[in-house]
Design a binder for these strands. Structure first.
Lengths: 202, 202
DNA sequence: ATTACACTGGACCGCGCAGTCCATTGTGAG
DNA sequence: CTCACAATGGACTGCGCGGTCCAGTGTAAT
């Protein structure tokens, strides 16, 4: 990892990461072997250890980073401009659709419950992801305030945190039960409450 | 498992389950071996396979069931009588305290992301847990309605589902980041919103 | 007492899989 | 051209750990 990477090398490296991510989503962390990844990415074991000298753990962390980036990237177009109630509804639909499509496999969830504890760097990735995600929500709420749709006295950070928790909870229930009911309820209720937050402060 | 269990046998069996649960919380599912469990519970490998013929998976499912029961049992005294706002506050404190104490190890979370997919019976356990948990919340909300603290028109099920999701999300964020901020925010915000749900329907 | 069977101990096995090594083939720089 | 080093292939290894087996010890019934 001393930075010595040819163009070809870079390509292979990211091919490995993306392929590994795919396999991990399909088979789950615990039952995915290096051979699976080799097969999927058409690589040899030497390459795996060439690009990830510390072995499987290092690769998993890389995949985690990749997936984390992916999460925000996917909803960025919607998450980036939450300046009207329509935009919020749209974003809600996207999130629900995304996770329903993903079904019961959460690359991040399972990944972090697997390596999060042992590897110190892994936790940092989730923390950063959560921070950015929540910040985006906060920005959205503030832009609603600016537009006069919400009172300025609103506790933005708490609201954003609660909303993020609602999503995470909905998703984790979806993961473990296969039902998206809770995700839908959490999101729509959360947004509804946010909407009424102004009129209920008496 | 044909029901042939002496008193001694029953004792040993549950000793295994409880011991295994403890080890699993400490070391995580992936890095817990049968030998760890043997050491902790002072048993031999024969006993493990005597009481759980199908092997590790069966034992894990049993532990999962045990932990699931535990979750509700712990908060039952509070969860059982959510008939005043004070009771809700109290319950909130208990939940937060419980999970903060538990820190970053979630017996169920990691357990199910590990075996939930493969073992069919495992998923049923979570689903049942969620159902009962949510039902308890719903009962609490209805008793508030009965007491005239909340309008009868409230969509109880959606609210309960959202609340449950909020908790789960808070917990799962606590698990992966180590911070209880979101759990606190989600719970207090959720209860606050519920409280204001009546006055904001116009 | 004896019989049947639950219960326990511990040696043993085999395989799946992470990680190692060296030999060979690109490939960019000078 | 050639030299150094990245990139690849693939055989080999070590062992952790789930699972099996049998032999020995309770223990509750008749």
């Amino acid at each position: 990892m001393g930075g010595k990477l040819t163009a070809k090398g870079k390509a292979t490296r990211s091919r490995i990461i993306e392929g590994a991510a795919a396999v991990l989503r399909e088979k789950g962390v615990s039952s995915t072997t290096l051979d699976d990844i080799m097969a999927r990415t058409s690589t040899s074991k030497s390459q795996l250890f060439h690009y990830f000298p510390a072995g499987k753990d290092e690769l998993l962390v890389a995949v985690a980073q990749f997936e984390a980036d992916q999460v925000l990237e996917d909803q960025q177009p919607y998450l980036g401009c939450l300046d009207s109630w329509e935009a919020w509804e749209q974003w809600q639909d996207v999130v629900i659709k995304r996770y329903e499509a993903q079904g019961d496999e959460c690359p991040l969830g399972s990944l972090f419950l697997q390596i999060g504890r042992s590897t110190p760097g892994a936790r940092a990735i989730v923390i950063e992801l959560m921070r950015r995600w929540q910040e985006s929500l906060a920005v959205g709420i503030r832009s609603l305030q600016a537009a006069g749709q919400l009172p300025a006295a609103l506790d933005v950070d708490t609201r954003a945190a609660a909303l993020l928790a609602a999503i995470q909870g909905g998703v984790s229930i979806l993961l473990s039960t296969g039902q998206s009911t809770h995700l839908r309820a959490a999101l729509s209720q959360g947004i509804t409450d946010l909407r009424h937050a102004g009129s209920a402060v008496p």
